[in-house]
């Protein structure tokens, strides 16, 4: 129960940071998705159901905070938590989070997440499928994976 409250508080904090402060790290309009990193972390700690449920809750709150396209982030982050849950191994959690395996998981999960997100998000605009996937999806994925080095190093030092 205690860990769930902790997840809830940190999730709220990260949603505010993602929606309000990430623009400071924006490169050509691309921002890292720290919520995806956080959902991967939760899924590696809690397993597939925990990751999926938290993905949905975090995504829905993010949709409400940004005030746009309610349900899209909920959908993509649910899928994100579900996929990240495949990498859950109760005996190797700490090892996974503090190794380059964590970056790889973030990269895979983020790629799937961003592909779905941007393809739906850019419908109704002049931005085509390939531009949505490669320019926005891939760039955000690489940026997110790069930022996930930070928690990985923090956890590897803790170990």
């Amino acid at each position: 129960m205690g860990s769930q409250i902790k997840y809830f508080v940190i999730s709220l904090l990260l949603i505010v940071v993602q929606s309000q402060a990430m623009k400071l790290l924006s490169l050509e309009g691309i921002t890292p998705d720290i919520l995806t990193i956080w959902i991967v972390y939760i899924a590696l700690q809690q397993g597939q159901i925990g990751g999926t449920l938290w993905g949905f809750v975090i995504g829905l709150f993010f949709d409400l905070v940004t005030g746009n396209f309610i349900g899209l982030a909920a959908l993509t982050k649910t899928i994100c938590g579900f996929i990240a849950g495949y990498f859950f191994n109760e005996n190797k959690t700490a090892m996974t989070i503090s190794s380059y395996r964590f970056i790889l998981i973030v990269l895979i999960v983020s790629l799937i997440h961003n592909t779905i997100y941007f393809v739906v998000f850019t419908r109704g605009t002049d931005i085509g499928f390939l531009r949505a996937v490669f320019e926005f999806g891939m760039a955000t994925t690489l940026y997110t994976a790069t930022v996930s080095l930070l928690p990985m190093f923090i956890f590897s030092r803790k170990q």
Partner: peptide
Amino acid sequence: KEYFVVTLLIIISLFFISNN
């Protein structure tokens, strides 16, 4: 159960998207 949970949550998300 994992598949039921993810399916249910995807349906709820799609419901939100279609009722924006």
